[in-house]
Design a protein around this nucleic acid. Sequence first.
DNA 1: CGGGTGTACTCCTTTACATCA
DNA 2: TTTGATGTAAAGGAGTACACC
Length: 350
Amino acid sequence: MELALSLGDTPKPFAFLDKAQKVVNRDLGFCMGLGKGAADRGGDHQSRNSRESDGERRGSSDPPVQLDLLPFSPVPRSQTSSSQLSFSWLTQHLTVAAEPGSSNGFTRAVDVNRRSLGVDKGGEEGTTALSSPNSAASSFQMDFSIYRSGSRSNKRSENEAENDIRGGMASSRASDEDENGMARKKLRLTKEQSAFLEESFKEHNTLNPKQKLALAKQLNLRPRQVEVWFQNRRARTKLKQTEVDCEYLKRCCETLTEENRRLQKELQELRALKSSQPFYMQLPATTLTMCPSCERVASTSTAATANTNVTSPPAAAADIANTTLSLAKPRQTQMVPFSPLQVQGPQAAL
DNA sequence: CGGGTGTACTCCTTTACATCA
DNA sequence: TTTGATGTAAAGGAGTACACC
């Protein structure tokens, strides 16, 4: 029997919160809770205040994480939430995970034969056995509660376990009063959760409500957590980009400073040359470039080389001036946006 | 049609906690 | 074991867009 995970596949937003779908699930007779159970949730979702009744925003109405095992045929793959939510990676992972022996990173810990479900507190091994080893949908979600079983002994595993427990809560947000008097505690996401969120961020750096809910469901987190993660992720991206931009501008500034220094030096040399050859250098450089007979001289520096046979001081000076002009002009054009007042071409000073 | 209000969302700043050297 | 630095989850406020009255 082939199974599929239903995450709400009607076009209507939050459709999987609708009663209609629950009716369908009930009718099909497969509705397996993967959360920590109502007892763990503290039932706080029942006592939300009215402001948070929207649920999506405050993440308060995320229902107990639920794995709906549906006969495959009534739910065509093309209508699964992953494709509908346009998370191609999600579709991909689910598809790959369905293949036994896959080495996909997300399927590594997905083997239902290796781990019991997150509800293993109550010894729900039998429930696990109900799902097919090939059921990517059911095993995928289990991936994110894998550390709960105590396979890790360090502190982080405890945090992750607690995170999973809290993440499964249907509380509105991690407020102090929502968690049975426990003080608010920052909980780090597991590597798998972070990687999953990263993948989704690559596709969409913002989430619509459906995507947020689907991700939260997949990762066993509250929608609010997913939302916050994306906020912080966007902030990190922006910060990184700012750093890159800053570095780039810094390099531009250094380059321009160096260029300015070089041009100033060149200007000094030309002034020195002008003072030593006052008669010839009094000719404006523009005159030299505009003279039809000097086309050859003004166009390229090779022309200057051709004129070196003349060994005439005025020609050499003119060549220097024109070469400087032809080289400096484009550079100056580039500099204008950055420092139009600081950088001056030699011909301007002449 | 313009203004007031509520809602939902994002960005930004700050705080608090976890982790690591 | 302690401590400071760093990374990041999370809270809260401001601003904006939109729908509704």
